[in-house]
Design a protein around this nucleic acid. Structure first.
Lengths: 337, 337
DNA sequence: CTGTTAGCGCTTTCAA
DNA sequence: TTGAAAGCGCTAACAG
C-alpha cells in the first residue's frame, strides 16, 4: 500500500508536487509531472480517500433516504439518482427508513459524523423541527417529498395536478361515486394528491364521501382488501383512484376473480406508470411521473448546496405529471381510437 | 463542530480518556466516564468518521455491485442487503455496472482508494483475472453470481437445480417441445440454469433444439418479441421456460392478445416469484429464490473476511430453490386441487 | 515552479 | 487508571 510519500521519494520530489499533480493544480512543469505520473504508475498508487476526506472535509458521498427500495417508484428513483451521482463523481449511500422515524433519525447521524456531504430525503418520517438542527452539519434536499416548514430546497412533482387530472378523467367518463386509495397517512405527496382529487370533485359539485376513502394502501394485497370493502358498501363506487399501480393491479385482479368487469363495472386509475400497467388485462390508466428528471435535478441542487454552503434556503422545483389513458378506465374500443 | 479535543478540555481530561470512553475501552473510572459523557452531551459531540477511518483503516462501508436496481430481483437483493448491513453497523454503497465491464472496473477503485472495506459482487462483468489483483486491497465476495476461477467466497443459489425442477415440471405435464429464454449471455447464473434445463430434457431422452433457444431476454418487451418468434417456427413449442417473471409476463400478455391460451396452447414458467406472478391471469408458475437469506449470508461472510483479513479463499455457500406451481402451467382446475 | 511545514481528528503505544 | 506524544495520508499556506 503505497502512499504519497513513496511516490515523492521515487520521483525524487516533494509530497506537495505529487499532490499538485494528483489534483491537477497549475504551476507544475511538464517534466516533473511526467516524473510523478511514472512513479504513480510504477507503484500502482491511488490516493487514500479517508486521508483526503479528513483533510478536505469532503467525502464525495451522498446519502439517499427512501422508505424501501422494493417499491418500484423508489427503485427507479434510486437507479436514476445513482446514475446522476456517478456522473458527478459522487457515490450514493442507501438508507431505508422503513417508514420509521427512529431509523430516519439514526441515519441522519451520517451527516453529523461527516460520513456524507449531504442528505437527500425522498421520504420524511420526522417533523421538520426534528430534522432542522442537522442543517448545522450539512445540506439537506427534499426530493419527491415536501414539507411546509422546511427551509431547504424541494425538488418535487405537481401531485395536486396529478390527483386532479386523474380524477377529472374519471368524472369525464361519467363517474360520480369515486373511491380514493392513498398511501402513507403522513406523506405530503399523498396529501397533495388528495387536494387535487377533491378539487376535481368539487368542480363537478360533488362532496367527497368519507366512506369512499381508504388510507394506508400500499401493496397489491391492500388493493384486494379494498375491493371487498368497496363491494360491501350500500352504494359501491363505480370508479377508484389509487396512489399506486400495485394497488390498482390488486383491485383489478380481485375484481376479475369475482366477475366484476373493469372498466365497465369498476374503472380504476393507478399511479407511477410501472411496467405492470402494460401487462395487466385491461392495461391500467395511470399517471406518469418524470422520476429521472426529478432525481437529476435533486442531485444537481445538492451538489450546488455542497459547494455554496448555504443550506437554509427554501427553493421549489416542480415537475409536471401526465395522465396516461389505458384500458382500465375506458372500454377497449375507445382506448384504441 | 466540536472535536475530541473540545470534549477533553470541557471535561478537564485528556483526549485519550475521551477516546477510551467513545470506544468502550476498559480501565476508565466510572467518575471520569460520567464527566466525559456529560461533556459530549453538552457539546453535541459526534466523532468525525473520516478521522476515524484514516486512523483505524476501516470505513464501515461496503460496496454492492449490481447491474441495475430496477430489475426486481436486484431491488430485493439491495433491500435485503441494506437491512443486513445496517444491523451490523455498516452502510451500503450502491454501484450499478449497467452490464459494463468498464464501469465495473471503475467502481473497483473504491476498494483501492480505501473508500470501502469490501466489495460484494452480485454481477460480474470482467474476467476474474482482471478482478483478482484488487484482492490486494480488500475482500471481494460473490453473491448470486459465480465464477469458476474466483478464489473468493461465493454465496449462491442452486441454479442448476432451479432450471432442472422447472423443466421437469413442464415435462411431467407432457410437454416435449420446450423453448428456453435466458438473460445475459455471460452470466454463470444463466449458464447453470441452462445446465439444469438440459439435464431434465436428457432424462426424458430429448435433445435440445437450438431453434428453441432465446438469449438476452430481460424485459417484458423481450417476452413479447419471443412469443412472435416462437409462433413463426414450423413446429412452435408448447411450453417455455424463462429466466425471469417479467419475460414470462410479456409472453403471456402477448399470447393472450393473440388468442393463444395459457397454459392450454402454451405453458409458461417464470423465475423469481415476483409480485407480478400473482397479478397476471393466469397466475405464473415460477421458481422462488431465497434472496433474503442469500443476502444475509453474503454480508456475514463479508464481515468475517474483513476481520480475518484472509481474502483469497474459495468457499461455496449454496441455497436451494423452490418451484411454485400456478396457473400458467396447469389448468385452473388442477391448480386449485 | 517547488519544497517546508503545519495540521485535519482520531487511536494507540508507551510511560507514569 | 490516566496522559503525552506519535502518526494515519493528505492538502494548502507560506516561503523561497
Amino acid at each position: 500500500m503505497s502512499t504519497i510519500e513513496d511516490v515523492a521519494k521515487l520521483a525524487g520530489l516533494s509530497r506537495t508536487t505529487v499532490s499538485r499533480v494528483i489534483n491537477n493544480h497549475p504551476y507544475v512543469s511538464e517534466e516533473k509531472r511526467k516524473l510523478v505520473m511514472e512513479a504513480m504508475e510504477r507503484l500502482g498508487y491511488v490516493p487514500n480517500s479517508s486521508a483526503r476526506s479528513l483533510r478536505s472535509q469532503k467525502t464525495e458521498l451522498i446519502a439517499l433516504f427512501v422508505p424501501r427500495i422494493m417499491n418500484p417508484f423508489f427503485s427507479q428513483l434510486v437507479e436514476s439518482m445513482e446514475i446522476a451521482a456517478a456522473e458527478h463523481n459522487y457515490q450514493l449511500i442507501i438508507c431505508q427508513t422503513r417508514y420509521s422515524s427512529e431509523k430516519e433519525l439514526n441515519y441522519m447521524n451520517l451527516l453529523k459524523t461527516k460520513q456524507v456531504d449531504g442528505v437527500i430525503l425522498a421520504s420524511i418520517q420526522n417533523d421538520w423541527e426534528v430534522l432542522e438542527p442537522f442543517l448545522d452539519y450539512g445540506p439537506i434536499v427534499l426530493c419527491n417529498e415536501f414539507d411546509e416548514q422546511a427551509n431547504v430546497p424541494s425538488v418535487m412533482l405537481d401531485q395536486v395536478h396529478g390527483g386532479y387530472i386523474a380524477t377529472k378523467h374519471l368524472l369525464e367518463q361519467g363517474h360520480r361515486r369515486i373511491a380514493y386509495c392513498r398511501g402513507s397517512t403522513r406523506s405530503n405527496v399523498a396529501n397533495h394528491r388528495e387536494i387535487g382529487f377533491r378539487k376535481a370533485l368539487s368542480e363537478y359539485g360533488i362532496v367527497f364521501d368519507e366512506q369512499y376513502a381508504f388510507r394506508d394502501t400500499l401493496h397489491s394485497e391492500d388493493g384486494r382488501r379494498v375491493f371487498h370493502r368497496m363491494l360491501s358498501l350500500s352504494e359501491p363506487p363505480t370508479a377508484v383512484f389509487t396512489g399506486s399501480d400495485e394497488v390498482a393491479a390488486g383491485i383489478i385482479s380481485e375484481a376479475k376473480k369475482h366477475g366484476c368487469k373493469v372498466p365497465d363495472h369498476l374503472a380504476v386509475v393507478g399511479f407511477d406508470n410501472q411496467a405492470i400497467t402494460q401487462l395487466m388485462e385491461p392495461t391500467i390508466t395511470t399517471v406518469h411521473q418524470p422520476v429521472e428528471k426529478m432525481a437529476q435535478k435533486a442531485l444537481e441542487v445538492m451538489i450546488e448546496k455542497i459547494h455554496s454552503r448555504t443550506y437554509r434556503q427554501r427553493e421549489i422545483y416542480k415537475f409536471p405529471l401526465k395522465l396516461i389513458i389505458r384500458g382500465s378506465t375506458v372500454t377497449n374500443k375507445l382506448a384504441k381510437l
